[in-house]
Design a protein around this nucleic acid. Structure first.
Lengths: 134, 134
DNA sequence: AGGTTATTTAACCGATGAGCTAAATAAATG
DNA sequence: CATTTATTTAGCTCATCGGTTAAATAACCT
């Protein structure tokens, strides 16, 4: 029976071929043939993978003559990210801690001074892991 | 054959029972019995789910007498988040766009004005989701 | 030791998933 | 119209998965 959307999406992501396809699509829309090219796998297999990705809402497909170009579809990615957000405090130090606000403000301050393109604005302190028992 | 770690993790997340278990564990460490309680499912089934989650690196387990308390393990969550980050630009407006910097600066400005003590520093629009992440 | 509680292992079953080959469909082109 | 190119459908196999019940461990408590 039909899985809930989040389960379909995670299931779709649980395959390295499909993740590689998504990585390729992150570079831009392309055809099934071109998507299939790097893999030692039949075309029907790729076709199935694409159907899984589409059903999971991770890609969408157009029609141009005999090609069905594929592209990333944002919605399901966003859903996954949203779900993951419920757990972010477990690994992201700059998230949702007592002094988190402070640290973030500091980080933002720091980010404003040098307009460097430094991603990963870690604040480097390692505070206590909140147990939040309850 | 052993799946690569990311595949195991996504596969583990592709089941609503397991996600519910993780949601429960987000509230704090607990026993198998207590984890099993909400589900209309045998204990061995839960035990299997826990094994899958553990093998996926999403939980870790201790030993206290006859109990094996489970808790969230951050590493795999972080890996998933990292992988997802490669696609963030597809749905996160405040990420990696020309005016992204501008928007973020606006959001930060707005966040600075009211020094409310509310965690979840929402700026009211569904904007700003990846601030400390460059 | 014997019993109770917590959890796992073993053995099984039906459904699903990923791969294949062969054949079908769709649209451009000679 | 026949052919080539792009993609999908059909039908098959084999492995894995999620669930079951019955039995085995493990640690505590008389």
């Amino acid at each position: 029976m039909p899985l809930d959307p989040l389960s379909s999406t995670f299931a779709a992501l649980a395959d390295p071929t499909r993740r590689a396809i998504l990585a390729r699509l992150a570079l831009g829309e392309t055809s099934v043939m071109e998507l299939a090219e790097p893999f030692d796998m039949s075309l029907p297999a790729i076709s199935k993978h694409l159907k899984v990705l589409e059903h999971a809402g991770l890609i969408s497909r157009g029609r141009e003559a005999q090609w069905r170009p594929c592209r990333i579809a944002p919605a399901s990615f966003k859903e996954v990210d949203g779900w993951l957000g419920n757990f972010r405090r477990f690994w992201d130090e700059s998230f949702n801690r007592l002094d988190g606000l402070l640290e973030e403000m500091k980080a933002e301050e720091a980010a404003k001074a040098p307009p460097r393109s430094n991603r990963k604005v870690r604040v480097k302190k390692e505070k206590q892991r909140g147990r939040t028992r309850g």
